[in-house]
Amino acid sequence: MTNRNLLPLWEVFVRGRRGLDHIHVGSLHAYDAEQALEYARDAYTRRGEGASIWVVESRHITASQEADAESFYDPMDDKPYRHATYYKLPDAVDNM
């Protein structure tokens, strides 16, 4: 099989409304960034889901490997004191 006809893959991120983070919604093939944006508009925001779209060519995304999760995140697992609930407040203090 040849890749001659395969256009590059793009990842699509959509912000539903101003002030929110862009969230990954899916991917698509397109010739260039401008075309990817237009396709993303057609494919992912047909019902007005988006106030803003980012497209990033998939090959530019470096992802952590879930298989390595145990060692990758291990240093974070034994630090319950990073959570507010670890600390007990006196009864007289209702919240903090």
């Binding site: 002030g19 004191y81 507010a84 670890y86 600390y87 903090m96």
Partner: peptide, 24 residues
């Protein structure tokens, strides 16, 4: 300003333990 507001949300979430550890 969006990016500033979102940084504040993240920071407030993480910071809740700071005050409590000090008070403790």
């Amino acid at each position: 300003y969006g990016p500033y507001a979102r940084a504040m949300v993240r920071i407030c979430k993480e910071e809740s333990f700071h005050q409590r550890q000090g008070y403790e």
